[in-house]
Design a protein around this nucleic acid. Structure first.
Lengths: 130, 130
DNA sequence: ACACATGGACTACAACTGTAATCAACAAAG
DNA sequence: CTTTGTTGATTACAGTTGTAGTCCATGTGT
């Protein structure tokens, strides 16, 4: 036995497409295209290709609605971001988040609000782990 | 004018090579190869190719020592990780670190030590930003 | 019914990647 | 000196990615 859903590699361009579908789904290719138009400047055909590749990779599913397809994500954003974050932090920071945040901090990328959110997060963690 | 050192795209495999050079440099290709042997199972030729590509991308520099080259990084690990982190967090979390850490937290990936380090970090931030 | 528009499927194609093998030049060994 | 090994340089080659274009079947307007 093997080949148990081996992490589908999602490319950068593909991610953008998936991202708008996470925001709201299901959606037709045209909806996806027009939503992407706000940020990216991609040709319609390009987006369709990406949709197709994501389907092939089993990242998206679809359901025919007469002539068109209604696409929707097959994986949850949370699951994806969690895995990606873990592997990112593992690669670049040997798995320790603090150094990463430290990088943010001394780069002035931390706002007062970030700090208070972090504090809240810590407090919550401490309550769940007394 | 333009073309001001446009972020050299470093691939995953290339990153591993760069990583061991960040750990200690300069180093000959053989040193790099043997250090990588501990983690990766790459053919000698593969590593040499990667070294070459990194040189071409101006990520590594070298200096001849008779027959061999002594390679060394041209970019600092800190600079690289900072940029990568910023773009990562920007893409996956709209630039907010807290949601990322929250993902870590509810995945039980935060240790007691992480938490105390985070607290220290916050305290430090607050002192510098009163 | 028929011509045209439209949506997905298939095809294109160069650059980048992972993963090496071959080549050429020089150094080491005999 | 000549053979041999070693080192970087060049070449290989398939798969992925970015970015579309072409084909074919079906829906639409007349």
């Amino acid at each position: 036995m093997s080949k148990m859903s081996d992490k589908p590699e999602i490319s950068n361009a593909e991610f953008e497409v998936l991202d708008v579908l996470w925001d709201s789904h299901p959606a037709t290719s045209n909806e996806v295209i027009s939503r992407l138009n706000d940020k990216k400047d991609w040709h319609e055909k390009t987006v369709k290709t990406l949709l197709g590749r994501l389907v092939k990779k089993e990242v998206l599913g679809f359901e025919k609605q007469q002539r068109q397809y209604l696409y929707y994500p097959l994986i949850a954003r949370e699951d994806y971001t969690k895995k990606e974050t873990a592997s990112f932090v593992s690669r670049l920071f040997k798995g320790k988040i603090t150094p990463m945040i430290a990088g943010f901090a001394n780069q002035n990328s931390l706002s007062k609000q970030d700090i208070s959110e972090l504090k809240a997060l810590i407090k919550e963690w401490e309550q769940n782990n007394d």
